[in-house]
Amino acid sequence: MDSHNSHDSQQQTIVESEHYNSTMSFQSPIELKHSGPGIASFIISLVSLLGYIAIVAIAGALIGPYLEPNGNGFIGSPSREMVTNLGTLGIVVIVFLLSNLIGVILGIIGAALKNRKKVFAIIGLIMNSIVLVVLIAFFVISIISATTIT
Score class of each variant (00 low, 15 high):
S28D: 15
I136K: 00
L62K: 08
T23E: 15
A121K: 04
I126K: 03
D2S: 11
V47H: 01
E16A: 12
S17D: 15
Q27P: 00
I53D: 01
Q10T: 13
Q12K: 13
M24V: 10
S145C: 08
G103Q: 06
S129L: 07
V131G: 10
L50C: 09
N72M: 13
S22N: 14
L50W: 02
L97N: 12
V47P: 04
V15F: 03
Y52F: 14
M1S: 10
M1L: 06
Q10N: 15
I126R: 05
V15K: 11
N72D: 14
V133K: 01
F96M: 06
G107F: 01
F138A: 14
L86F: 05
G73W: 05
S79D: 01
V93W: 03
P37T: 00
Y66K: 07
H7A: 15
E81G: 02
S99F: 09
N100F: 07
I126M: 04
D2E: 09
G107I: 01
L50Y: 03
V47S: 09
K117E: 13
G36W: 02
V83Y: 04
H7Q: 15
Q12H: 13
I130F: 11
K117V: 10
E18T: 07
F42K: 06
F139I: 12
I75G: 07
F74R: 05
S28T: 14
S79V: 00
K117S: 12
A54S: 11
F26D: 15
F139T: 12
V95F: 01
E18P: 00
I39E: 06
M127N: 06
V93Y: 04
A121P: 08
I126W: 03
I144S: 14
I30C: 09
V15H: 08
L132P: 05
P65W: 00
Y52I: 09
M24Y: 08
F74E: 07
F139S: 13
P78G: 12
L101I: 12
P37W: 00
E31I: 13
I91K: 08
K114I: 11
I105K: 00
L32H: 11
I75H: 05
